[in-house]
């Protein structure tokens, strides 16, 4: 079963995890054979929001600007047997120490 580990960043000034921690974690995920995909997102200041209204008119705005703790900084999709295994990968993720990792099952159609 596939799960998305959504990595919500904590404040960058207080980050305790180093770049090396992330490299090591990334390697562990890939070596374990559970890695499906994963990316780090650029800073929220580079984000742009698109909304289409009822008339079909698109509005493009800069942002969003969310609370720091709500910023999605990256994600992994892993393929593991059950939630306990997924939660264990989340627990080991450096992002869980500096912010929070939300684990969501991926819907299959």
């Amino acid at each position: 079963m596939k799960y998305m580990l959504m990595i919500y960043a904590g404040s960058a000034d207080e980050a305790q995890c180093t770049f090396e921690d992330w490299v090591a974690y990334d390697k562990t995920v890939k070596d374990a054979g559970v890695f499906v995909s994963g990316h780090t997102l650029k800073d929220l200041t580079t984000a742009t929001t698109v909304q289409v209204d009822a008339a079909g008119e698109a509005t493009v705005t800069d942002g969003p600007y969310a609370e720091t703790r709500e910023v999605l900084g990256g994600y992994y999709i892993i393929d593991v047997p059950d939630l306990d295994v997924a939660l264990d990968w989340a627990r080991r993720c450096p992002g869980a120490r500096d912010g929070a990792v939300v684990v969501r099952p991926v819907a299959e159609f």
Binding site: M1, P81, D82, L83, D84, P105
Partner: peptide, 10 residues
């Protein structure tokens, strides 16, 4: 069922 919480003893 949907998040597949396992039936197992830790």
């Amino acid at each position: 069922r949907e998040a597949r919480i396992p039936f197992r003893v830790p």
